[in-house]
Design a protein around this nucleic acid. Structure first.
Lengths: 347, 347
DNA sequence: TTGTACGCGTTATCAC
DNA sequence: GTGATAACGCGTACAA
């Protein structure tokens, strides 16, 4: 039972008295063989227990069928769901994925990219944001980004602006006295900035009292909790007796906010309405199901891979036509109305 | 600006008037060159803008540095965190990961495995459970499983039995009148069965009234919610006035259970204690921070990769010694006591 | 310390 | 329809 060397086309060729070329053709262009000969080779494969070797194939024809993915982390449900959906496109497109988590470390991510290039990936999907789109574009391989700065590269993003509009519009339609948007520090170049802009535009258009609270909520749970508690105290004081419409940057934070509110007041106060973002599972599993601007993650993931596949196919043509401008696809969000805005009938 | 062909060792050799071999040595055994010559080659690499090609290296020396991962899905936080930690070991071990999500489809997973073998992965980490450990062992490559049936393959698992003991012990120490364990249908061959066994053993050892409720909670949210609501109604009726200690199979379900309880009774009833499993973020972000049996996911992931690396290294030796028996590593859980068991002082 | 020659397993290009 | 031969880019005896 020694570790026999792998069976190769040579072995099959010897066994069947064909040439290596014919064996290769059996796999890549079987119609060019007679049915009898196909059967002969087919039998030989079983007899010899042949296993294909894609590494050799890559070296010979250059097609790795690898896509690289760099994602910031998998702790936020949004990211893990995106990754899940991307990986699942294997069944549709057949591409294999080399996955790296960046953890916000620029040097490590550069190392990742170097590795990915060394393995001759055909395309790259980037969700992390430590490396500028300009640097990425310079890599000169097909790239699609998701929800990050994307000036020089193709991308697929949620229509964040519409999300902000939907959230503010929903709160406005419930006649809130003041609209509050809570978000982390966000550069204007990022797609998520659209949420803020959409919120602001609706507020100004409808002459609504409003406030945008920028807090660093990306750190540990304790500090996030402390900051949200502070916000609640401020709101309770500044807008006492007024109907407050809260739009929070993601469902995880919306849930924490809701629970803090609940714990402070022993109930979900009548004068609060909450809208989150993402439609993560937690939004409907919360103590009060949270209204949220849902991202269509399955579509985002599919469109990202689909776009990347198109770019990669173009690249394989004899005379590839490079893009004049990066393509930016926009996926509309879907507003989910739940109890944090649509109160149940009161007795 | 045409797509120049890739720069190879040949090009560098010509440019520097060395041989290919010397260039190869520069990368693999630089000490065997003089410092001057190293500098010459180093300069040439920059001038020619050389990019390494690992595919060719693989074909030549057989070392892909690929590890395959098959994971059921990324929807449960436990899985995405495990994957995050595994991928992050790149910085320690340097192995690259080809990741597939199984979605419980046996045929698809078999296809994955075929692909992984074709790409000459050096080892495999399996979290999905559609394929028996016997079949996996027959692949004859280093394999480590996590939290699945593992009779014929190496594995790293949480000490589920101790987890069950800790949970039941904690509830018992608070003098519950009855202990309830809620879990999904679980075969005795699965590591998670230990949670049930540990729970039962403690209950019997301490002569505690107890009940194990097996419900299929893996389906959609609505049915999970409906089943848990039913359980709450039953418990409220059957054990009215008695102190009920609830041990639930994971934090996601524990959180849903807690919220349903809260919504029904308007408060977290005095006669309920809850312990979850996993120490997922939701457990501390819940309306009442949930006590839970924490899995040390970072350790599990590290030990899994570490064990796999050892197996792979052994395999590379001239005369590999195959394992007599699969190695099963056990990682102790860490009990997190939070408010669902340790009530705050009441006024 | 450096070079020569060959092998890794497949595909591509021409012939026939 | 089939075969011989040369790539693909790197590692590695073995020799010098």
């Amino acid at each position: 039972m020694a570790q026999k060397k792998n069976v190769t086309f040579n072995d099959i060729a010897e066994y069947t008295h064909f040439s290596k070329t014919t064996i290769s053709r059996y796999f890549n262009n079987p119609d060019s063989l007679t049915l009898e000969n196909q059967a002969i080779i087919s039998d030989a494969l079983v007899k010899l227990n042949y296993k294909e070797n894609k590494v050799a194939r890559i070296l010979a024809n250059g097609k790795t069928e690898f896509i690289g993915i760099i994602i910031p982390s998998l702790y936020l449900h949004y990211f893990s769901e995106i990754l899940d959906r991307i990986l699942s496109t294997y069944e549709t497109f057949g591409y294999k994925f080399l996955v790296f988590v960046g953890n916000e470390k620029k040097e490590v991510e550069k190392q990742y990219i170097k590795e990915l290039l060394a393995y001759k990936i055909e395309g790259l999907i980037v969700l992390s944001h430590t490396i500028s789109s300009k640097s990425l574009a310079a890599l000169n391989i097909p790239i699609v980004s998701i929800e990050r700065e994307d000036q020089y590269i193709c991308s697929v993003n949620t229509d964040n602006y519409m999300g902000g509009v939907q959230a503010a519009g929903l709160l406005a339609s419930h006649n809130c006295d003041v609209l509050i948007h809570i978000n982390s520090p966000t550069g204007k170049e990022l797609p998520t900035y659209g949420r803020i802009q959409g919120f602001l535009d609706i507020c100004e258009e409808q002459h609504l009292k409003h406030q945008v609270l920028i807090r660093d909520l990306k750190a540990d749970y304790e500090s996030t909790q402390a900051q949200l508690e502070k916000i609640i105290d401020d709101l309770d004081r500044d807008y006492a007796g007024q109907k407050k419409g809260i739009f929070i940057s993601n469902d995880t934070h919306a849930n924490i906010f809701l629970n803090l509110l609940f714990r402070k007041h022993k109930v979900f106060p009548e004068d609060y309405l909450i809208v989150g973002f993402d439609n993560s599972p937690i939004s409907r599993e919360a103590i009060i199901p949270i209204s949220t601007v849902g991202q269509q993650i399955d579509k985002i993931a599919y469109e990202a891979v689909n776009l990347l596949v198109e770019l990669m196919n173009e690249r394989k043509k004899r005379r590839p036509v490079p893009l004049e401008e990066p393509i930016h696809k926009i996926i509309p969000p879907v507003l989910m109305r739940r109890e944090t805005t649509e109160r149940e009938e009161r007795a």
